[in-house]
Every structure is written in C-alpha cells, then in structure tokens.
Design a protein around this nucleic acid. Structure first.
Lengths: 225, 225
DNA sequence: CCAAAAGTGTTCCGACTACACCCATGT
DNA sequence: ACATGGGTGTAGTCGGAACACTTTTGG
C-alpha cells in the first residue's frame, strides 16, 4: 500500500473502488480494509486505488479485486462515478466505483491469511467508513437489490452446483424478506435457465435436495445495461 | 474551443461528454458538434470537455450542457464512465458520460445561432462519430429506452403544459413502435401524477385536446438509482 | 419415531391486451 | 360537410400472490 496518495494533485486523478459482496452466514457481507492514513486511521474503507497509465479503468478495478481476494473470473460491474471536489482530503480524486459478487466458498480464509486488516462486514452492521464510501456502498446495495429482480446476477454468488433453497436464500438475504417457496421455484424454473443434476445430502439431518446448475455460464464481466 | 487537448498526458485526465436528447419532428434527436481536430476533422462528436480542477464532475457536465444549449434546469443523469486506454488518440482520457433531456420548445434556434458547427441529428440517421462516441450514444439510447418504462423522465421532454397525445408521442418515438391510445391513457392517468387544466387548440383543424401538467415538479437533476 | 428441510398444485385477483366508435373543432 | 386528431369502455387472458401437506433423510 505504498502507492497511495500522499500529496495534493494539481489535476484530478482517477481511482477506482470495488465493493465486494458475498453471502454467507445468512447475511450479505462486504469486504472492507482498515485504513492507516492520517485522517482516517482505524476507519474502514472500500478497497481500491489509483488507475495506472497503461490499464483501462475496468482493468484497474479487476486488479484491485484480485489483489484483495485472489479470486478471478467473478462478476464485476461498473457502478457509478463519484466526482465531488472534496471527496478526498488528499487532493482531487475522481473514483469510478465497481461492485463485484463472489461465491462464498471458503473465501474467508484466503483473504484473512494475507491481510490482517481486511474483513467481511455484514451490511446490516457497518462501521463508519472513510471518504464518501458510505454513499458508494449504499449505491451498490441499491443496485444489487434492483438487479436481483431483472437479471441473473444471483448466479455469481453461488457455487457451480447448488440447490433451489440456496438460491432462494440469496434472494431473501439480499432483499431482506421471505419469499414463498412454491412461487419462487415455479418462477425460477419457468425461466428455463437451470438444469437438474443428481442429488446431494446437505450437512444436516433432512431430506437431500436436488442439485441444479446454470445452463448459460455467460460472460462473467458485464457492463451496465 | 481552445481548451481542448493538444498534447499527450502523462497521467489520465478526466473529461465528460453529454449526450443531449430532445424529441421533435416525430423523431428522437441528439445534439452533435463538428470536430476540427486532426484525426477527426469533419466528423461529428458528442459535446464535452475536460473537468476543471475546482468543479465536480457533475458540475462539469452541467457546464458543457449549458455552453452548448444555453438551457438550465434540465434533466441530467450520469450514464457510464468510459475508460479504455486507447479511446482518445491524444492521450489518456477517461470520460464520464452523461445524458440530458430537454424539451423541444424552440431550442433549434438558440443553438444554431451561436455555433454553426452544432446540429441536431435523428438517432435513426447518425453520421460516423469521433472517438468511442458511437458506443456512448448507443449506451445512452439503451438507457433512455429502459428508463421510459419505469421512471418519469419523459416529463423532461415536454413543456409544462402538454396533451396526452404529446406524451404518448414521446413514448412512441423513443421506443419505436405504436402504443394503444386507450391503454396508454388508462395507465398514465392511473399513476395519479397528472393534473387536468383547461383546453387548448392545437395548430391544426381538429378537436382541441385537454391540457395536463405534472403534479410533482421534483428535482430536475437526478442521479442514477 | 422425531426433527428438519425438500418438494409439490390450485385458486384468486389485479394488470395488461386487444379492439371500434363518437366528438369537437377548423376549413 | 368533411377532414383531423381527441376522447372513451369492455371482455379476455396472463402472471403473481396466497396458501398446507407429504416426502426423504439423519439421528
């Protein structure tokens, strides 16, 4: 983290922030890093950093995502650009914010082993964030909720094989209220995007659930609209 | 236009482009300017320019909008940020694109009197555009079409008082197909956003149409989401 | 045999679609 | 009187919402 801004810029510079979401423990979680810089010491922030000269803004977002999570090939979408003059006390920084969705599979370990100042927070219990990152995060949550309704981004939060209950849990956790099981299954299956596989037994003592997979593993990096 | 980029930048700089729409002559129109710079001489481009040090990106977009149209208090929304490395041959320029909607009322005159290299183009018959502006414009059109369905941005393309037929024409022109008159009126009126006024006589020889106005003249500058 | 989650259909209601004729004005 | 756009209602269909019991496994 030596690359971070330490002086005033005469002209605006471009940075990117990546809001990284996952769902586990029945909650929507976001990855935050602990700040070490002067005015924000001890505060948490959305991971991000400057856009280099030889990379596109998309590539910069991807790079920051990989640096923090080690995960590649995940859903990454541009969110919004935050360009207020005083959003960064170090100088004029315009930030192109992205949001990413990653499956929960064992990710906790990877990140926390490499950075001890990185942690998952439930979006229900957020600390105060540095910069305008609270606004960025709220925008991301709004967008995520909205897109659940008319897109298939929920795919990106699940492993390749999953049960309908797992899928439904994703929706319930993010939207914050319960859905009718029968209606949910009818609707999802009527879309014709899922394929049945064999059976699995979950950890617990109950009837094994049918496993499904998505037919179209389409492009994992998508653009808005 | 002496402020435009003439040299390579060592670091990325931030610009903004504003896609300005209006509807008249039964067509969706976009405002374009004619380029004078080297590789694009004679080509048309979306108006825009650099973001200054003391203004937010939103303010820069507004400024460029006012410079070209002279119109204030119109709908202006951030569209998307275009950040490919090679999108500008002069150097590294990241562009935050916006789109604006303005009522058709007599606007032709204002713009063409001040700039002879500015013109309205029907989006159905576009020239080849400079930079990646074709992509920007397509993104804007997509977004505009999508938002017609779940928002009230159509307001911004009409004068304060208007007829239901005028409103319907906006939808038909932008979406590109005909709507059922009775169904359209039922739906629009059921939203409870319109107020009836008196009557008007249109230019032509036909029954005068009822005039309506929008109840909530809410904030005219809105943000995405 | 009990606990725990999986799986499965039907009814009701509201929203959207399709569709055709009379009305008020200007020329 | 006629041409032009303005204005109005109904029937049919489709999709979404509400709702409860049986099944399969592990302990």
């Amino acid at each position: 983290m030596k690359h971070v801004v330490q002086k005033k810029y005469s002209h605006a510079v471009i940075a990117t922030d990546v809001v990284i979401f996952t769902v586990y423990e029945e909650q929507l979680k976001v990855l935050l890093i602990k700040m070490k810089k002067k005015p924000f010491v001890g505060m948490w922030a959305i991971p991000g950093g400057l856009v280099h000269g030889k990379e596109s803004v998309d590539e910069a977002a991807q790079r920051h995502l990989i640096e923090k999570t080690g995960v590649k090939d995940v859903y990454l979408e541009q969110l919004y650009t935050f360009g207020h003059v005083d959003r960064d006390p170090f100088g004029r920084v315009v930030s192109v914010a992205y949001f990413a969705l990653i499956p929960n599979a064992g990710l906790k370990l990877k990140t926390t082993s490499e950075y001890d100042d990185v942690a998952w927070f439930s979006v229900a219990h957020l600390p105060k964030l540095a910069y305008d990152h609270t606004e960025i995060l709220e925008t991301a949550i709004q967008r995520l909720k909205a897109k659940l309704g008319y897109s298939t981004i929920s795919y990106s939060l699940l492993p390749k094989e999953f049960t309908l209950s797992q899928l439904q849990h994703i929706y319930e956790v993010i939207l914050g209220d319960a859905l009718d099981k029968r209606n949910f299954r009818k609707k999802i299956l009527s879309l014709g995007l899922l394929k049945r596989l064999g059976k699995k037994r979950s950890g617990g003592a109950s009837r094994p659930a049918e496993l499904y997979t998505f037919l179209k593993r389409s492009s994992l990096i998508a653009s808005v609209l």
